[in-house]
Design a protein around this nucleic acid. Structure first.
Length: 420
RNA sequence: GGAGGGCUGACCGAGUGGCCGAAGGUGCUCGCCUGCUAAGCGAGUAGGGGGUGAUAAGCCCCCUCGAGGGUUCAAAUCCCUCGCCCUCCGCCA
């Protein structure tokens, strides 16, 4: 949720929103409703003040004076409740529209859309394509079985098997322990949350189409544990000493991938279900920028340690999600495609979801909304795709990246070992 | 799935229709006192929103006793729905 007060007072705030290409007129409509609402609030509150005073007097009055006073107060009640109903309607309308207004893009975010991100750096050399692409290779090695998964569950599902399964666990362990070492509290989160949690995390209503609902709409499957982690301090006022509060979550993630028909259909690059380790921080407002850099640095540390060539992009305003004021993506070179593909993403939500969550910090500067940030630790299936190409050897064997070896218990998988 | 109990301010805890935004205690802050110690005395101490004002201080108003609705001139107190916690029975990994 945006800050309506800043929207009406600060031209830069509004400009940040407009850079995200919001629908024509939405902002003006919100502002108009907001003005209307505030006027009505004043009226209603004045009426309430009169009624409160009248009621108090009745309490103090002698019993024989009461009937007359009660009658007078009853008249006020009717007037008040009529105005209150109007206010309720107005509130609902304003809220519905305001929820659709995105968090303003930060001043340091470039203009434009998908292709206008600013590449901040490119790290590592890009190798030529391997003999087999990730999809063919992982099936041939028996690491992935999408055929039976399609029968069991449909397209975009996979069985991760044998050394592939162990590699998955190794990645999870590696990411978890690395991030914990950076001071994040490890958490295995619920994978199902209620609608309110989705909304407060900043996902609903804008991203509803990407989310599976179950139990007749009572619960929703997470697309990322970020949603569950954000609720960890819901409706709480934290002491400033408690910040930054850093969590690293593990959960299975579920995504409908609506609107991606025909995109990334091979292998497990884009699937409906995958495991992901995710970082999440609550900070004081003035520290969120450095925390964003910190999260990015951890992501780079892990991708670097896995020996993958990558580049870092400052995502353009038009390509930011509703909640993000700024977002860094890391894309790793996928040799078979000869392209950089997104592997992590970290965002600074500033106070956007904190406002919905009611997460505040109280310190020397009074009580303020916190800032929240999130970033991918390791998204497992997509990382497996990259490993299947970068660690596929000329003879067809698979070599385990050094940093994962403590977690796998094996160092290589011979080309012939799992062939069926 | 069944039965019962509970949810009050940073914390504990009183409060069954008006004088309750809320006793008392703990904690915390400030001041005083005391040659010592988790001692004593006094004062203060919730949050959100709106108006005015200089996006100050101050002042005024509204809302909040798990959440949402209802009854009433008036609700922490009565009624309904929901959420969460606890206990017992059943079931279960």
């Amino acid at each position: 949720m945006i800050d309506l007060k800043r929207l009406r007072d600060e031209p830069d705030y509004r400009r940040g929103i407009e850079r995200k290409r919001v629908g024509e007129g939405l902002i003006d409509e919100v502002l108009a409703l907001d003005a209307e609402r505030r006027a009505l609030v004043q009226e209603v509150e004045a009426l309430r003040a009169r009624q409160n005073a009248a009621s108090k007097e009745i309490g103090k009055a002698a019993p024989d004076e009461r009937p007359v006073k009660i009658e007078a107060a009853a008249a006020l009640k009717d007037e008040l409740s009529a105005r209150e109903k109007e206010l309720q309607v107005l509130d609902a309308r304003l809220r519905e529209l305001a929820l659709q207004v995105p968090n303003p893009a930060d001043a340091s975010v470039p203009d434009g859309g998908e292709d206008d991100g600013e590449v901040l750096r490119v790290v590592g050399d890009t190798p030529p394509p391997p003999p087999l692409d990730h999809a063919t290779y992982s099936e041939a090695m028996g690491f992935v079985d999408t055929k039976h998964a399609a029968e069991a569950s449909g397209s975009r599902f996979a069985y991760i098997m044998r050394e592939g399964a162990l590699l998955e666990l190794a990645l999870v362990n590696y990411a978890m322990s690395t991030i914990v070492r950076h001071g994040f509290t490890p958490v295995v989160t619920p994978a199902l949350v209620r609608e309110r949690t989705m909304e407060e995390a900043g996902f609903f209503p804008t991203d509803r189409a990407q989310v599976y609902d179950v139990d007749g709409g009572e619960l929703f499957l997470l697309g990322t544990s970020e949603v569950a982690l954000s609720a960890l301090h819901r409706a709480e006022t934290l002491a400033s000493e408690e910040l930054p509060a850093r969590y690293v979550g593990l959960s299975t993630c579920f995504r409908r991938e609506a609107g991606t028909y025909g995109k990334d259909t091979r292998g497990i690059f884009r699937v409906h279900q995958f495991d992901k380790v995710e970082m999440f921080s609550f900070t004081e407002p003035e520290h969120s920028v450095e925390e964003h850099e910190r999260i990015l640095a951890i992501e780079e540390e892990m991708i670097g340690a896995l020996g993958l060539p990558y580049r870092v992009t400052n995502i353009a305003a038009g390509d930011l999600g509703a909640a993000a004021a700024k977002k860094f993506d890391i894309e790793v070179w996928l040799p078979s495609e000869g392209a950089y593909r997104e592997i992590t993403s970290c965002s600074n939500y500033t106070d956007y979801s904190a406002r919905r969550l009611g997460t505040r910090v109280k310190g020397a500067r009074g009580s303020r909304l916190v800032h929240t940030l999130n970033g991918t630790g390791i998204a497992v299936s997509r990382m497996l795709v990259l490993l299947f190409e970068h660690y596929q050897q000329a003879d067809g064997s698979f070599e385990v990246p050094d940093v994962l070896r403590p977690y796998t218990g094996f160092t290589t998988v011979a080309a012939s070992s799992n062939r069926r």
